[in-house]
Write a protein that binds this DNA or RNA. Structure first.
Lengths: 339, 339
DNA sequence: CTGAAGTGATAAACCGGTATAGCTCCTGCA
DNA sequence: TGCAGGAGCTATACCGGTTTATCACTTCAG
């Protein structure tokens, strides 16, 4: 027998299909003795549920989806997604839930995928990343009635559950640290302006400036690419009065910025301190190694998985879980300013 | 009506469920007129197949799987997988096939996943990466009768289909290039010794040495990590007679090696030429930018998807498709040796 | 004019589970 | 003694498709 079904088990155990189903799903309806016997037979025949059959009957597919809307080219360098994925899976595999991953070019395509997934019953819920201001995906998901958890989005936005870390506090910890070193001209090379977390970080810098007595604290937005990170750095370092420290919103941009500094003969950390708002192997490979903000992305993913499963179980629940605060890992790229 | 089923369509069209199924799947059994009418009604009701129902009836799930057995920590820096993923999906989405991605710690776990997937009917086939010598996964898949395509493995191994690029020729092109520059002491910092492609690259170097008059051409294996890449480089550069060129099996190790060279005061490319056997944004971010072997990983993935679909359609087919040869992108890290 | 083959469709079985109504005992309590 | 109630189980419908057996009706060759 290639693939035993519950009917086979029922035959062998001398009971009905229903009894087998009850036993295998741990629900009342059979005696402990019968349950044990059925479980033993199932084990012995190495029975496994047919996912499609179960999905059809129970109208849940034990599968969740993650769509990443970024050009593939910019992906992969950032360990962020790899860690997030691992974390998600670690949270899901405990419940035997599988993960569908899709990489698309833009948000419209992403929404199309959600529509398809919903209509084809391919996933029980989805994970949202890279929340933008007035994000069109929120409405789309609500109208599809597809359970979802937002990663990185602060709670309160609509009714979607979320898992988030405090970007504001994190940015403040960086700026505080640089100010304590003596820096008064701190520039911020930010990411895409329509990302919510970009906005929050920019606001944090702006708000902290007066308190810390910063002379100048410009935030310059980019598209997160190494090219724009480099170009922005070049612009900053070409000014008559240069910043003595630059905070980058991603590790890739920080590395690109470091390259520009070296090329222009600006010594790091002598003439310029550099901090990356995201840690990875990249920052550690550099010379000098970059001071960076370390976030536990794996744990982030794990928690997101948990929250999503809760939302799927009880769609009315609105959960906003805050994760552990990121910590600043000081390395060789930061020092007191030369002045 | 929340979700129309083919029964609803059948009602509206005044035909039977079977006729609707025939029409929607483009198979004979209905007249062109009826077919057109059914299709139009389905479109109008915005009908979508219920994936589980289809899977149950047709015993195919329109989904394939990819398991990556690497610690998450080492993942993500390498754009290889991101590009592969995108390529796979571009090849799959044309046929509305979805992709399941799983990251596990080791090969045993990977095989467990295959068993589960096969027994739960979760995927129609799988994609294998990182083929090792005497790979236990090959037998496992064969006994599970799970269609598979091997990426990077040369054909002929068992009956599994494969998609591969010529690692040997690629390595030869690197060594030829370095020899043409005048290098005679070329070291090779290789990857994990039990990977088949590592073996092929090592053999290529060894075979080319006499022909090119290389004085010394050692291949040193590592675990692909930046740490071992750095350590091996340090060992090589501490010798009385140093190599004048080093070829690294990955971009991460090459970057780590560059760091060590700079730290030891060995100028690149003045005293040492560096080549990475894999291109990415990493190699371009460095100063000097690294000469690297560029492979079209996206296309790789796309072709793998195509081959896998063929194998799923006709399991007896054994396909061995060779992809475009990688090309060497010369940048700033290579030059004629000093002396 | 008859029989064979082909066309267009239907009804029903089937895939492998889950959910539910209902049946048979057994127990406890008035 | 009678009966309500629950435990333990069976039988069956059902989920939404696909597939097969069958059938009515043409068409065409002999």
């Amino acid at each position: 027998m290639a693939r035993p079904t519950i009917a086979d088990i029922a035959d062998k155990a001398g009971v009905s299909k229903g009894a087998v189903s009850f036993a295998l799903n741990g629900r009342p309806g059979v005696s402990d003795a019968t349950r044990a016997r059925i479980l033993q037979i199932a084990e012995q025949m190495s029975w496994r549920p047919h996912s499609a059959a179960r999905a059809l009957g129970a109208s849940r597919v034990d599968s969740v989806g993650l769509v990443i809307a970024r050009p593939a080219r910019t992906l992969g360098v950032e360990p962020f997604f790899a860690h997030l994925l691992s974390g998600l899976q670690s949270g899901l595999s405990a419940h035997s839930i599988s993960l569908q991953l899709l990489i698309v070019e833009n948000t419209e395509a992403e929404i199309e995928v959600y529509k398809r997934w919903a209509s084809e019953h391919r996933v029980d819920g989805v994970i949202l990343v890279d929340l933008t201001v007035r994000d069109p995906r929120l409405d789309a998901l609500k109208s599809l009635e597809l359970p979802a958890v937002v990663i990185g989005g602060r709670g309160g936005k609509g009714a979607l559950a979320s898992v988030w870390a405090d970007d504001r506090d994190a940015m403040l910890s960086i700026v505080d640290y640089l100010a304590a070193l003596g820096h008064r001209r701190i520039a911020h090379v930010a990411g895409t302006p329509n990302f919510q977390h970009t906005q929050r970080r920019i606001r944090a810098v702006r708000d902290a400036a007066p308190r810390l007595g910063l002379i100048d604290a410009p935030s310059l937005t980019t598209d997160f690419s190494d090219a724009e990170g480099a170009a922005t750095t070049r612009r900053l370092l070409s000014q008559a009065v240069r910043p003595t420290a630059i905070v980058y919103d991603s590790d890739v941009m920080a590395v690109a910025g470091l390259g520009v500094a070296m090329e222009m003969g600006v010594s790091v950390p002598g003439d310029l301190s550099i901090v990356a708002f995201d840690d990875s192997i990249l920052t550690q490979l550099m010379h000098p190694a970059l001071t960076a903000l370390s976030r536990d992305t794996f744990d982030f993913g794990r928690q997101a998985a948990e929250v999503l499963l809760e939302v799927i179980a009880t769609p009315t629940a609105t959960i906003n879980r805050r994760t552990a605060d990121p910590v600043l890992t000081v390395r060789e790229s930061t020092a007191p300013p030369a002045h």
